[in-house]
Design a protein around this nucleic acid. Structure first.
Lengths: 136, 136
DNA sequence: AGCGATTGTTATTGCTCATAGCAATCCTTA
DNA sequence: TAAGGATTGCTATGAGCAATAACAATCGCT
């Protein structure tokens, strides 16, 4: 079948993102995580006592949708909530949460390295700056 | 907030794809199309009398999910179905379908050019080959 | 002290995708 | 040529995800 779509960078961007996301999701799924879960665990680890709203802003996730997401992490005993004042609650990793984050980081780093290895060396260093220009 | 995620190509790939997809979707939405709809119209235009199954294989869409998709295009009178034999049906663009496809192509080409312009010139030519290596 | 902004939350909706199953038809091959 | 596996189009259904609206409680600026 004749298909002109793959010659379009925007289209290839979508296809590449879907394909790679499916792979990473499968691997993270083995430790009970989705990509968003891993992102949130990593961000909380880097920013102890950050709030749900701040996380949502950083990850472009609506406040309302953070609720079931954080509930899952809390039910798994990966995060704890500390009241910061009468309104906000700071989020921190539990010890098990740190372990899970470390496992996620290991999976992600392996995955990222494999991604880079797939790219012909002369293009490799250009991917990240090109992508950054598209969304940052 | 400290955020190590954007330094990961895989993460930036997902974010860039989401951001650009949202933009393109908004523009295509103005003529009543989603990205998939546009893709299908373009592919049918390039491959008259192709079948729903073949389209699904090319675009990685399940056969079952092609049904409502094609029904929408047919209800809009953008495509017609020709029985090829007792089982398969060839898909073709109606004249209005060709107009809609042309409009979609114009939007997409404008969009793709804008994407490329956002990328610093020294990285520009590397994006497509790098992406292709990730999913093809 | 007052008031707009923010936080966390509930509830709801639409959309997309995956799965399973089915009847009809095909195409290969024995 | 008859049989059997593969293919096609389709229905029905369910899970998952994101967007929206609304709300009470609280914060923080003026």
């Amino acid at each position: 079948m004749h298909d002109p779509l793959p010659s379009l960078p925007g289209y290839s961007l979508r296809r590449a993102a879907n394909a790679t996301a499916a792979e990473l999701s499968a691997r993270l799924g083995e430790i009970g995580l989705r990509q968003v879960d891993a992102s949130v665990l990593i961000l909380i680890g880097e920013n102890p006592d950050t709030t749900a709203s701040a996380l949502g802003r950083q990850l472009d996730i609506q406040r309302a949708n953070m609720v079931p997401l954080l509930k899952k992490l809390e039910d798994a005993e990966w995060i704890d909530r500390n009241p910061l004042d009468g309104k906000s609650q700071g989020l921190v990793l539990t010890p098990q949460g740190q372990d899970t984050r470390d496992a996620a980081l290991a999976i992600i780093e392996t995955f990222e390295n494999e991604l880079l290895e797939r790219i012909p060396p002369q293009h490799r260093a250009h991917l990240l700056p090109a992508l950054d220009a598209l969304w940052r």
